[in-house]
Design a binder for these strands. Structure first.
Length: 776
DNA sequence: GGCTTAGATATTTTT
DNA sequence: TATCTAAGCC
């Protein structure tokens, strides 16, 4: 039986500042916590202190985080420290918490307990239907941009009515009408989107004093993590919950605010101080994570942001190694250089793959690294790639489940009404929808009405849909099927229900006919079943809803394992976006794609505000590293098919030379490459032809054009080794990339300066050829 | 009514 | 490059 740690032990291994933060338990507290300053540790200790020392019952403590990952980590840390009763702690994401509240008391804001949570896909589907109904051209008004305006409105707590009252342009007009129809559609479907989870919780608490009191009583202590990432609604919910007890502790770092595009509002940090007067402020600026050099470099970058709450991190850690800044020719070379350096870390610094992460701005960048890892046989862990629950077949079956769980869920219904094809055309669906909207009922009501009448019920139809006989029969069959699913769901565990649906809906048969991908898809459905099994056994009514909620809210499955080995335990390199990397740390971090247009992202370069966020993104990345930090850029990068030369990221210029080593990873000094004299970079970007670069082995230079007897003309990517051991990697047009032993494969230099711009490696033929191919 | 194909189009980050 | 949509064909 785990015991509650004694206060003495609990506090002993904390710094003075940390202890201050942990023990200030009466009244509002703002913790400004720099990267690696032990933020999570403080939160966990605080919870343990509240329970162990202050005798606060665990269930009276609510800790909200921003991501599931953070929630999981905090929960685990708390459980370890708190011991008994720790399972009663409420550690949730904001959305998770709100969903919980609405399941219990959502009726007050017109939600039935089995409401569905609509993801971006569902939202887009709803929006597209509305545009269709309103006869608006979706090309002129892309659903996604309309939805983003709607999301803005919701975050500012504006109703459709409020929006339509102040329309100035035609665009405003359309937006307001779509918003109104959208709200109607969700209402009819007993569904909420992500914004609604927060908005409706806010409305529930604000408009129902007894509810507010209930939740204020329930939670005596509130902790909010990543406060700089909270949006206006989240702040309001937190404010309402804590208004009475005033026991609210928020933790954040304005320098790590990287979610403004999702309405995160870092001014919440300052607003906190005005909302909760006399809030105590504790700043944690000692880093227990990174070396001095890494901290200095990160600081030299972030200092360029203005209007910050200034804080400079310090550490008792060693000075550490200088940061390596390196340049690759293109993304393929970038990947191999990174992997080479990462592999070397093992022998040189004893840093294994598990402690190495490669971080990039956009997911698409992971590809080059996956290809390279596969080629080199290096196992990797891709964080947040294609999500399991996003696969078509999984979404289809989930849609069946959603209809069973919440028969009003029109988005789910429309997804599967004709999957597999069962003779209900888009026309018929549109007609069903028209009738449903006209009567303000879910589409399934109309379907079941048709089913009833067509099955010989004497009573006249309630709704009148114009469908031909064929369609009526198809719809009837579908209605019968869904009715059976709903009936049987009462007696079945969710995993059993999945089996039933797969077989009886014809979905399984459809997959078995699909020779190409059917098997793989069926396996995915098996996996879905397995994940449903975890929810089996609990009360019949709740388990399906609970499962679906989990899918909607906690969809971050563990990273897919790639590489040669199927051994999941094997040490693997982590591939991760900068956004997802927040909160994580690694011994060695490789930041890649440090180019204008990538980081900062091209969408951000014109806007100073967004540019500062890009800088924070880089800051987050740099401060993930404990011991070693590498920053890479590629001279040329292909982006959606096209390649072009890149300028070095302006952020690289912000790091002082004294913190950087220019040691080339291949063992050649390339002093000139320690970037970016901007003039030089600019010239490089605008000049076709080879850029100035140092000589590689035996005079072969990256970017140089060469000719091979068998493969024809190509471009040198890189070369390694010396003398007769020299290997030259060449990209041949139409032949892919080959690695050639110079002593076997004579290369001729082509004297022509134009070649590099056309360089476009064919990914299909990317692997290294057999040794015999090296011969001429 | 259903399927194939071509063509267009959009591409940041995620609860 | 990859996905999604619309139009054309069976």
């Amino acid at each position: 039986m785990p015991s509650i740690s004694s206060t003495e032990n609990l506090l002993a291994d904390l710094s003075d500042r940390q202890r201050e933060a942990v023990t200030h338990t009466d009244g509002p507290l703002l913790i400004v916590a720099g990267p690696g300053s032990g933020k999570t540790r403080v939160m966990a200790h605080r919870v343990a202190y509240l329970v162990g020392d202050k005798g606060v019952p665990p269930w009276k403590i609510l800790a909200v985080t921003f991501t599931n990952k953070a929630a999981r980590e905090l929960r685990e840390r708390c459980e370890r420290l708190v011991g008994v009763g720790s399972n009663k702690l409420q550690v949730r994401t904001f959305h998770g918490f709100c969903s919980r509240v609405l399941r219990a008391d959502g009726e007050k804001v017109a939600l039935k307990p089995e409401f569905t949570i609509y993801d971006a896909d569902d939202q887009a589907r709803v929006a597209r239907r509305i545009l269709d109904d309103l006869d608006v051209d979706p090309k002129q008004f892309p659903p996604r941009s309309l939805l983003s305006v709607i999301s803005d409105a919701k975050n500012n707590m504006r109703s459709p009515a409020q929006l339509s009252r102040r329309t100035e342009t035609y665009r405003d007009e359309i937006t307001a009408r779509v918003y109104e129809a959208y709200e109607g559609a969700l209402q009819r479907a007993n569904a909420v989107d992500f914004d609604d989870l927060l908005l409706k919780t806010f409305q529930l608490l604000e408009g129902h004093p007894e509810m507010l009191e209930k939740y204020q009583e329930r939670f005596e202590h509130l902790l909010v993590d990543e406060f700089q990432d909270t949006n206006a609604l989240q702040f309001q919910v937190a404010r309402l919950l804590a208004m009475k007890s005033r026991n609210i502790c928020v933790v954040g770092d304005p320098d790590q605010s990287i979610y403004s595009w999702r309405h995160a509002d870092p001014t919440n940090l300052t607003d906190f101080q005005s909302t909760f007067k006399n809030a105590k402020i504790v700043t944690l600026d000692q880093s227990y994570r990174s070396t001095q050099i890494i901290l200095e470099a990160a600081d030299s970058v972030i200092s360029n942001n203005d209007g910050r709450m200034k804080k400079t991190l310090w550490t008792e850690n060693s000075r550490g190694t200088r940061i390596t800044v390196a340049e690759a020719y293109n993304e393929a070379e970038e990947a191999s250089l990174v992997l080479k350096a990462a592999t070397d870390l093992k022998s040189k610094d004893g840093i294994g793959r598990n402690e190495v992460a490669i971080m990039y701005r956009v997911n698409a960048q992971s590809r080059a690294f996956e290809v390279a890892c596969n080629r080199e046989g290096i196992p990797y862990r891709l964080v947040g790639g294609i999500k399991f629950y996003d696969r078509k077949e999984v979404k289809d079956i989930l849609s069946f489940l959603r209809v069973v769980s919440n028969p009003a869920d029109d988005a789910a219904l429309e997804r599967i009404i004709n999957v597999p094809a069962r003779g209900i055309s888009a026309r018929s669906v549109a007609e069903l929808r028209r009738v449903a909207i006209a009567n303000n009922v879910p589409a399934l009501d109309v379907i079941l009405d048709i089913t009833r009448v067509n099955s010989g019920d004497e009573d006249p139809p309630t709704y009148y849909a114009e469908l031909n006989t064929r369609a009526i029969n198809s719809v009837t069959a579908f209605g019968d099927m869904i009715t059976r699913f709903i009936e049987q769901s009462l007696a079945l565990d969710t995993n059993e229900l999945i089996d039933l649906i797969v077989e009886r809906s014809g979905y399984g048969a459809m997959l078995r006919e699909d020779k190409e991908r059917g098997e793989e898809r069926m396996e995915n459905l098996q996996e879905l079943k397995a994940s449903a099994e975890q929810f089996a056994g609990s009360e019949e009514r709740g388990q399906l809803t609970e499962f679906l909620e989990n899918v909607a809210l906690v969809s971050d499955v563990d990273g897919l394992q790639g590489g040669d080995s199927s051994d999941v335990d094997e040490e693997a390199i982590t591939l991760i976006t900068l956004h997802q990397a927040k909160g994580l740390e690694y011994d060695a971090v490789f930041l890649v794609g440090l180019e204008e247009g990538m980081l900062p992202h091209s969408r951000s370069v014109d806007d100073p505000t967004q540019l500062q966020e890009e800088r924070r993104l880089l800051y987050v990345g740099m401060t993930r590293a404990r011991k070693r930090l590498y920053m890479f850029r590629a001279f040329q990068r292909s982006f959606r098919g096209q390649s072009g030369s890149q300028m070095a990221s302006r952020f690289l210029l912000e790091i002082p030379d004294s913190l950087v080593t220019t040691r080339d990873i291949r063992g050649h000094d390339r002093v000139a490459d320690r970037m970016p004299d901007p003039m030089w970079t600019k010239r490089m970007a605008s000049t076709p032809g080879p850029r100035p670069t140092s000589k590689l082995n035996d005079g072969y230079t990256a970017g140089e054009k060469v000719r091979h007897k068998a493969f024809g003309e190509g471009v040198v990517v890189s070369s390694s080794g010396v003398g007769s051991d020299t290997q030259v990697t060449v990209a041949f047009s139409g032949q892919g990339i080959k690695r050639l032993m110079l002593s076997f494969a004579p290369l001729e230099k082509v004297v022509e300066e134009e070649s590099k711009q056309q360089f476009d490696p064919d990914e299909e033929t990317f692997e290294i050829q057999d040794p015999e191919l090296f011969a001429p």
